[in-house]
Design a binder for these strands. Structure first.
Length: 414
DNA sequence: AAACCTGTCAACCGCGAAAAT
DNA sequence: CATTTTCGCGGTTGACAGGTT
């Protein structure tokens, strides 16, 4: 195998990352942002190429990553999105907050494909295997196979049924944020709006974080095992909090509405960030990092099968960039209409490894090429503990409608 | 107990697009 | 406008762990 030209030239390290390297990278990025990736390794003192640093950060070290097993609803959503978007993993990943394209790609190749085949569905075309010649492993060509233009429409999965009704999916559609409004809420308009909302949220700066609620789509996917019913779907434009309350009542009356369904719903209430998992009652990133950021992924996986409730914290949908933060600058934190003053340095102490925080207090940004992409929204971390409580409620195996109502109250507080 | 098989996942590679020069 | 650099994406590889024979 060849290597990167830059790796050859500079004899850079390859392969697995050591904890020390991770530490360096985290410290550097939490202080200065990534800026130009090619300059990161030099500035962080790493013998890696910038590409490798970027990958490590995006796929493993970012604090807003949701780790652990995929829920059934997440898998369903991936299947649905794959039927529409094909192997555009990064696009699909934008609809699953806290998941990386690499993670989704791996899941698809190792798990979902097999499951679909076992159900007699061709994973590439999303059509019954019997109807697919050869069943080869070529990725779907969205603009052709899924457009459903002409020819006999064979029985297909709900996902491809929807996809077939869509206009040709091409790049221009991906980038479009315009949504077609329809007087009658057909499935087509549902999906159109779903995608439009997701596309707008995929920028990380969606004005309406509720726009990416996945339920309407999931409600069409009984074949994939979703336990959601149409009645549990959130109508677009409705108030999610009202929906939560209403669904809470349904829960009491409908115990078969599974916890997973709820988790999938609530997990999409905010698309911007994920609270680090497995740290209930111990809510610092340093602890989370100690528990999760090592080179033994198998030991760091949260196997609860549940989901991680998201806060409004994000490195990508930031309120202010790192470069604008000075160590003792007072920041105002929005908490559901209330503002809370705290010092940035205190905040760092509470949220990051002490060493990184200490360095942050004594350092200034390296140069002016820090990009907006390395921004950090402070509000989410400050409400972390609230999220931990909500996580506890939502991860309970037999969640009740009463619990769900308290979740709704919790969101109102957020 | 050893060899083999299988699944998972982090990381690498090459390419194209976008941005910078 | 051409060239170079940087970034992001999707495909692929290889290490590792656990299971099976």
């Amino acid at each position: 195998m060849g290597g990167h030209a830059c790796c050859y030239k500079q004899k850079l390290r390859k392969g697995l990352w050591s904890p020390e390297e991770d530490d360096k990278l985290i410290k550097h990025i939490t202080q200065f942002g990534h800026g130009c990736w090619s300059s990161v390794p030099k500035q962080a003192g790493l013998q890696r190429c910038g590409k490798s640093c970027r990958l490590r950060w995006i796929n493993y070290l970012r604090p807003d990553l949701k780790r652990g097993t995929f829920s059934q609803q997440e898998e369903d959503l991936i299947v649905e999105l794959h039927a529409v978007l094909g192997n555009r993993w990064s696009k699909i990943a934008t609809h699953l907050p806290g998941r990386t394209d690499n993670e989704i790609k791996n899941l698809w190749n190792s798990c979902i494909k097999k499951k679909l085949r076992q159900r007699g569905i061709d994973p590439n075309t999303h059509k019954p295997l019997a109807e697919v010649d050869g069943g080869d492993d070529k990725a779907p060509d969205n603009s052709e196979k899924n457009s459903g233009s002409g020819g006999l429409q064979l029985p297909v999965t709900p996902a491809v049924a929807i996809a077939n009704r869509l206009p040709t999916v091409d790049k221009s559609m991906d980038e479009s944020t315009t949504s077609k409004s329809s007087a009658t809420p057909t499935k087509e308009s549902f999906l159109d709006q779903f995608l439009a909302n997701h596309e707008s949220s995929s920028t990380g700066r969606s004005p309406n974080p509720m726009a990416s609620f996945p339920l309407p789509l999931l409600s069409f996917t009984p074949d994939y095992g979703s336990s959601l019913t149409t009645s549990a779907a959130l109508p677009f434009g409705s108030n999610p909090l009202l929906w939560l309350n209403q669904t809470a009542r349904q829960l009491d009356a409908t115990p078969e509405l599974s916890c997973n369904a709820i988790s999938a719903a609530v997990s999409s209430l905010s698309t911007s960030a994920i609270a680090p998992p497995s740290c209930a009652g111990d809510s610092t990133i340093s602890n989370w990092y100690a528990a999760n950021c090592n080179n033994s992924p198998r030991s760091s996986v949260n196997d609860s099968g549940g989901f991680m409730l998201q806060s409004s914290c994000s490195f990508d949908s930031g309120i202010f960039p790192w470069s604008e933060l000075t160590p003792d600058k007072d920041v105002q934190v929005q908490l559901g209409g209330e503002t809370e003053d705290l010092k940035w340095s205190e905040y760092l102490h509470g949220a990051f490894p002490a060493s990184a925080a200490a360095q942050a207090q004594s350092s200034q940004p390296l140069d002016g090429d820090i990009k907006g992409g390395s921004q950090f929204t402070i509000s989410g971390l400050s409400i972390w503990q609230q999220n931990q409580q909500l996580q506890h409620q939502l991860q309970a195996p037999d969640i009740s409608g009463k619990d769900f109502q308290s979740v709704s109250v919790g969101f109102q507080q957020i």
